[in-house]
Design a protein around this nucleic acid. Structure first.
Length: 973
RNA sequence: GCGAGGGUAGCCAAGCUCGGUCAAAGGCGACAGACUCAAGAUCUGUUCUCGCAGGAGUCCCCCGGUUCAAAUCCGGGCCCUCGCACCA
């Protein structure tokens, strides 16, 4: 099959150049004080499996920028490493060990991509019981993939985040945070499996994967010699309490909780044990036992009864509910039942009078509701019983929303009277907290949430959780300052950064499991993997010197990094302490100082709310201003035929298949030209052939003409008009490419190189009036520009052509084409546009002539003075007002004789809302049309006669008078 | 719920920051023509509606507003996507 042959041809060329690049180490960047540097990074991949086409988009964009900057003359550093810290690899290894079918299949799928036989796959999989083996395997696989895509990476600097030298670096980083006081320890709630004794992440859950943690306020109402403790999401309603609800058939306890006596459900007592409370159960009893007893209000100590209610779930929160019948539909309807049937509680010793004595309390005013919103909504919705849980829930939601956003505390709410609910909630909690009248109780926000081990997941609280405290004084301000002074491209993402910065508070930075660096001041904890990968761009600047010189981890002490990165300390002392030669130490410091800051960090927007924001915060915490990140650029993810890619859907194209399946250059071109970076890209298989044909069209033309001897035909050489047009066009395109790349409009750039340029060149090739020699020499010149413009996009093909052109060195290192402004001639381009629009007009007229086949087209060019008039208007730069322009023109003697025609032009300008393109003069326009006559003739299949409209030799239908500059008049016969 | 970003012709996708040159680039698909025995590939043209010669009409989610002029600015509505913390 010829197609396959062709593909293998691509692979051959790609491999050839990749080998040479590697052999000649052209992407290995060393400091060169004579050249400006450009340091670009893309976050290292997580080496837990094969990467796919979507990851490739991001790395391809990174490489494109690196290659472009290199050609612009920068000393470019584009390094790469691999990420293995954290829980996923460990988690997968555990699952493999446990014989988990899904995990094994998932790895087998990935392994088959890299290994030929099923035996090899099984053999490799057997070794995946060690996370290091897994990480190493995929790290190697991915770097091979990256090489096969032509990424211009300096591989000498690679490392993994599990390396001990890297641990030393992170240790230093966390000491710095500690010194600044940015690290804190405190309580932190987390989903927790009581059976495994471990926190659970999304991947560990069988049911309820997206469960979050809900924070209840547990309120301590005085009861006997302790507290009865209901938990609520609406603590501000304590002023409307009329009674307590207890499920008579559930089990309750008296327990000593952190030294206080609490009455709660038995289940709640168990949960509190997980929530870092000291819990000792003193007495266990059925709820029925305390029904009818009295408890005391929080705010004024008045007594209220404890009543029975079946809707109370002892397994939710504390299993105790306080009743606010004026505002809570559940409470209202439960109370209603008792009012209707007071005898049902007689057995608890509660009289009908006691029940009737309970009066609802209205404590929140909202527009659209009366005294008791709960009563109203229950009646409005016709809810009849406690059993209608779903409808009651809806009613609750409605009231809650209305009250939260629009409600105001009535004047029976003590010092909170008159305040808006949404503001007062936290204040009520703060007030109770100050009086030790409330606590926090956590629950998952949904049920069921089940661990993979089958156990019901609870909320656990880590008392000693380590945090990075982004609210530490001054930190956020500095980070905002950094954000304001750096560029975000596309800038639309800046808002997202700002929102993230606002929202960041404390972030847990360590965990008890996974691979990583131990927290230096509390080795039980391992630094969490997003928090250990924030300033490692600095590590790239010296990684090759550490590994190249075989420095031991122990040598990389705090003072080592202080000296190298911050210039702190004395060279001789540091050398003595670390045993690192002072010359080497100095060179590492120098190298860091040369490369830093990171000029551009490129990745996907999904990292804004974590990695990228942390990177900014951590940089400002540790480095001086001149070493903060300069720019963050982003590209969105890739969809597959309109669908999200996922391994479970099986619609993932792995990165490793790309070179074989498409060819690296074609993939690169596709992925850059299919969508602008800021938007989600849709991979559509059926569009690939188009890209392929564009690329091969480029290859073909360039192969044919690039090797000819280039020559630039100046005006005095009297080339054909279309040659001058092409010279102008090629330089204009070069200019536009540069502008597009500089403004991160990568799609525009790709389209210019692979769509616009071929269109222009093909058009030129089809113009038969150009002498062969002139054509070849001109195309040779254009191809020289074109190959260099295309090199960042399709580097392999371009190297191949470059070598055929017998040019020195690699196109990857060739200078970026400078547009030659002398050759750019907008008048020529406009004149050519007139030729094209003339052809379009003729076609349109022909369409309307129905059947008649004209043999000849007469073209009338507007008179010379009109071109002068247009120029005069252009130069006067008038607003588009008919009167003004009219006045302006009539004030010039040259135009005075043409009042009527001037009016026509001015009307047209008004109608078109401005001026349009045309040739520089009547002479030029005539020349353009005349010299294109043979072309027009071949396009339209009819003879072309060009006339001046001034005194046309032939004009039977008096058409000449309609001609305007850029708008020829036509007559077909 | 909170936060961010979107809705453009059959589909994908530019344009919107800086209102007019926008019936709106480019691609896919479709249709027609050239080439071919034929298909594919390639090239050329057409692809909102109407049209008496290059013209006119109606369009950029919906409704309203600002303006001489709005896909572009403002207000409201409907719908969609993404992130929301221990997960890389």
């Amino acid at each position: 099959m010829p197609r396959l042959l062709q593909m293998s041809e691509y692979v051959k060329v790609e491999k050839k150049w990749q080998k040479r690049w590697e052999r000649d180490r052209i992407f290995e960047a060393d400091p060169d004080p004579k050249r400006s540097k450009f340091f670009i990074t893309v976050p290292y991949p997580y080496t837990n499996g094969a990467l796919h086409i979507g990851h490739g988009r991001t790395y391809t964009v990174g490489d494109l920028i690196a290659r472009y900057k290199r050609m612009r003359g920068y000393n470019v550093l584009f390094p790469m490493a691999s990420h293995m810290t954290g829980t996923p690899i460990v988690g997968m290894v555990e699952r493999i060990k446990a014989g988990d079918h899904d995990a094994i299949e998932q790895y087998k799928r990935d392994l088959r991509l890299y290994l030929d036989s099923e035996e090899a796959v099984d053999a490799q999989l057997k070794k995946f019981t060690d996370p290091w083996v897994t990480a190493k395997f995929f790290a190697d696989a991915i770097s091979a993939d990256f090489k096969a895509l032509g990424y211009s990476i300096d591989w000498r600097r690679k490392f993994t985040t599990g390396d001990r030298i890297y641990n030393q670096f992170v240790t230093w980083q966390y000491h710095k945070f500690m010194d600044k006081g940015y690290i804190r320890q405190g309580a932190y709630p987390i989903l927790y499996c009581p059976h495994d004794g471990n926190p659970v992440g999304e991947d560990d859950l069988l049911k309820g994967e997206d469960a979050k943690i809900k924070e209840f306020t547990a309120i301590k109402f005085g009861f006997e010699d302790g507290f009865i403790v209901p938990a609520t999401l609406r603590p501000e309603t304590i002023f409307g309490v009329t009674n307590m609800w207890i499920n008579p058939s559930s089990t309750y306890v008296w327990a000593r909780v952190d030294g206080e006596k609490w009455m709660i459900s038995q289940a709640a007592a168990e949960k509190l044990k997980l929530q870092a409370k000291k819990v000792e159960v003193l007495d266990t009893f059925p709820g029925a036992r305390i029904i009818g007893k009295k408890f005391r209000a929080v705010h004024d100590q008045h007594e209220m009864p404890i009543l029975p209610a079946d809707f109370v779930d002892a397994d939710n929160a504390t299993g105790v509910v306080y009743s606010v019948p004026g505002h809570a539909p559940f409470d209202y309807i439960a109370l209603q039942d008792l009012w209707d049937n007071p005898s049902s509680v007689a057995r608890y010793g509660i009289s009908a009078d006691n029940i009737r004595a309970i009066k609802m309390i209205g404590m929140i005013a909202i527009e659209g509701y009366g005294e008791f919103p709960a009563k109203e909504i229950v009646e409005k919705r016709g809810i009849k019983s406690q059993a209608e849980a779903e409808r009651l829930e809806e009613a609750t939601q409605e009231i809650y929303k209305a009250e939260f956003y629009g409600g105001v505390m009535k004047d029976n709410c003590g010092q909170f009277s008159g305040r808006a609910i949404k503001d007062v909630k936290d204040q009520v909690v703060a007030w109770m907290k100050s009086k030790k009248l409330c606590d926090v109780f956590y629950e998952p926000d949904r049920r069921p949430v089940v661990c993979k081990c089958g156990t019901n997941v609870q909320v656990g609280v880590f008392a000693g959780q380590w945090f990075l405290d982004y609210l530490s004084p001054g930190w956020k301000d500095k980070a905002r300052q950094a954000l304001d002074t750096m560029s975000i491209v596309p800038d639309t993402f800046r808002h997202q950064f700002e929102a993230t910065f606002d929202w960041l508070t404390q972030r847990p930075c360590a965990r008890k499991r996974g691979i990583g660096t131990r927290l230096p001041f509390d080795p039980e904890w391992i630094i969490e993997s997003l928090s250990d990968s924030t300033i490692y761009m600095a590590f790239y600047t010296i990684a090759h010197k550490i590994t190249g010189n075989r420095l031991k981890p122990e040598q990389l002490t705090l003072s080592f990094f202080d000296y190298v990165f911050l210039g702190i300390g004395n060279l001789r002392d540091v050398s003595k302490e670390t045993g690192v030669e002072s010359a080497l130490l100095k060179s590492m410091h120098d190298e860091f100082m040369y490369w830093y800051p990171n000029d551009q960090r490129h990745t996907a927007p999904s990292h804004i709310s974590n990695h990228l924001s942390f990177a900014i915060f951590h940089h400002v915490a540790i480095f001086p201003k001149e070493h903060w990140l300069k720019c963050i650029s982003l590209n969105e993810h890739v969809n597959m035929e309109g669908m999200k890619m996922s391994k479970s859907k099986g619609n993932v194209i792995p990165l490793v298949e790309i070179p074989k399946k498409y060819g690296a250059d074609i993939y690169r071109t596709y992925v850059v030209s299919a969508a602008e970076p800021g938007t989600l890209m849709d991979w559509r298989e059926r569009d690939v052939p188009t890209v392929k044909s564009k690329v091969s069209q480029f290859t073909e033309i360039v192969n044919k003409y690039a090797t000819k001897v280039p020559r630039v035909y100046a005006k005095k050489d009297k080339p054909t008009m279309i040659t001058r047009w092409l010279l102008s066009k090629a330089n204009t395109i070069a200019k536009e490419c540069t502008e597009s790349l500089d403004s991160f409009k990568l799609r525009d750039y790709a389209l210019l190189v692979m769509s616009e340029m071929p269109r222009v060149v093909t058009y030129y090739l089809n113009r038969r009036e150009v002498p062969a020699e002139e054509k070849q020499a001109t195309l040779a010149y254009v191809c020289d520009i074109w190959v260099r413009l295309a090199a960042p996009l399709a580097p392999h093909i371009c190297e191949e052509v470059w070598s055929k052109m017998k040019r020195e060195g690699y196109v990857s290192l060739a200078p970026w084409p400078e547009p030659d402004s002398k050759l750019m001639d907008s008048a020529i381009e406009d004149a050519q546009a007139v030729v094209e629009s003339t052809i379009r007009d003729v076609r349109e007229i022909m369409k309307l002539m129905k059947g008649e086949k004209p043999k000849k087209v007469h073209v009338y060019i507007a008179p010379a003075w009109m071109f002068d008039a247009m120029r005069s208007i252009r130069e006067a730069n008038l607003p588009i007002k008919v009167g003004d322009i009219m006045k302006h023109l009539m004030s010039v003697a040259e135009f005075k004789p043409y009042t009527k025609e001037v009016k026509v032009i001015v009307d047209r300008i008004a109608k078109e809302n401005g001026l349009w393109g045309h040739s520089a003069s009547a002479k030029d326009e005539q020349h353009a049309l005349r010299s294109s006559a043979s072309y027009i003739q071949s396009e339209l299949g009819m003879e072309v006669v060009v006339h001046s409209a001034e005194k046309p030799a032939y004009d039977p239908q008096n058409k000449a008078r309609f001609a305007l500059p850029g708008r020829v008049s036509l007559f077909l016969e």
